[in-house]
Amino acid sequence: MLLIRCPYCEEERPELEFRNAGEAHIARSTNIAGESDDDFEKFFFIRSNPKGVIYERWRHIHGCARFFNAVRDTVTDKFVMTYKAGEPKPAKLPGASK
């Protein structure tokens, strides 16, 4: 069971308290009704599924209930860091695998 740090509670808590909510930093267009098919496809269907660092949304559903972002390495399954929803993608990652 993974330990995940909730950036709102500022504590590491067991995975049981959290729920994954898919890839992060995929913004919903403010003019979604006017989006082209291609743009909507990219927004709704296409996900990166990388081998290595992935940016994800998680929710501390059995805790503070907040959504937040996390950087996880899909190879080691380790959480590199977590940060609050709305904050930009971190420019530099602490100790990520190459």
Partner: peptide, 13 residues
Amino acid sequence: MHHMEDYLQTEFP
């Protein structure tokens, strides 16, 4: 509830 919270917290904060 989860769906509503998701949009409220992340898309329409």
